[in-house]
């Protein structure tokens, strides 16, 4: 209740001073915590940097925590600890959209706002979600090859696990990009179940089936790395694209073995989610339920160095 009054009064002051463009300073220092999925993954190291930058801009104290083992139970434990510490807001990239709900409910009971980042939360009260959706990642991959092939060529698509929501979203994104170009022919679109072994065997068979393949669009890096082995073994020239920007893929891009990988910037996602939360704490303006961020970056040999330096 106190916080509500504080927010209302701040809002009133804010409106009153709006013409003077003065930002109202809160009475006490605010604390925000960002909980990521796995600190051993460079993607989340980026996310932390983004969150820290946004918090700094708004003068809010920022902490980033990560479960030791990447499990949702440990994330909930961290949330409980943060509730005990009475932080002002929690930004979280949940490992599981459903598994995290009990943690969110506990934060709700303690009246601590929760913001979802990177992955949606399917229950409890959250103030909003900010992330790059999978459709735009797929579209970014498709756009890259449309440009690279000058709108003309033979491609194959290695889909994710049939039935998985991400697999559908990626595929939808790719088609948004390529369907406008009738000269881009999809020779085959088939599943390799997000799996490296299958990426290799499926690509082997596709290479047998089609004498010329210009590009293979893989809906994750793991399949792309498997497909790469098949292409090398067959001594063929096929441009391979993946999604996730895994360190292993980036090395392959550097060596010219893989053409491109899409990075759904962790930095941007961390920045946006933290910024929206800061604004909420300072002004009481609730962020939109879903904030979709811009197109993810396609990382190829052309911008690899620049990308590696930026993270």
């Amino acid at each position: 209740m106190k916080r509500f009054l504080l927010v209302v009064s701040l809002l009133a002051v804010g409106i009153a001073l709006a013409s003077a463009q003065t930002l109202a300073k809160p009475a006490k220092q605010l604390n925000i915590v960002l909980i990521v999925k796995d600190m051993t993954n460079p993607f989340f190291v980026d996310m932390k940097a983004g969150g820290a930058a946004a918090a700094k801009k708004y003068g809010v104290n920022f902490t980033c925590l990560s479960p030791e083992k990447s499990t949702v139970d440990q994330q909930i434990k961290i949330m409980e600890d943060m509730i005990q510490k009475k932080v002002d807001a929690i930004v979280i990239a949940p490992i599981d959209s459903n598994g995290i709900i009990s943690g969110v409910e506990r934060a709700n009971a303690a009246k601590i706002p929760v913001m979802a980042c990177n992955t949606m939360i399917n229950g409890g009260d959250i103030i909003g979600f900010a992330g790059v959706d999978e459709v735009s990642s797929g579209k970014s991959l498709g756009d890259y090859f449309v440009k690279k092939l000058n709108g003309k060529g033979n491609i194959v698509i290695l889909e994710g696990t049939t039935g998985a929501s991400s697999a559908q979203a990626y595929l939808q994104g790719v088609h948004q990009a390529i369907d406008k170009y009738p000269d881009i022919k999809v020779l085959a679109s088939t599943t390799a179940k997000y799996n490296r072994e299958m990426g290799m065997t499926v690509m082997e068979d596709l290479l047998t089936r089609f004498p010329t393949i210009d590009a293979a669009l893989c809906m994750n890096d793991t399949m792309a790395l498997g497909a790469k082995e098949a292409v090398q073994e067959a001594h063929r020239k096929v441009m391979i694209g993946g999604i996730n920007a895994l360190p292993e893929t980036l090395e392959a891009v550097k060596k010219g073995e893989i053409e491109v990988t899409v990075n759904a910037s962790g930095y941007l996602q961390g920045y946006a989610a933290t910024e929206l939360t800061c604004k909420y704490l300072l002004t009481g303006v609730k962020p939109p339920a879903v904030t979709k961020l811009g197109d993810p970056l396609a990382v190829s040999a052309a911008n690899l160095e620049q990308f590696l330096q930026s993270r």
Binding site: T162, A188, S189, T190, T191, V202, D205, L206, T208, R209
Partner: peptide
């Protein structure tokens, strides 16, 4: 496994 890919059987039906 080989023929599923050579024949282009749709993913959902494999």
């Amino acid at each position: 496994g080989n023929c599923i890919n050579l024949l282009g059987v749709p993913s959902r039906f494999q």
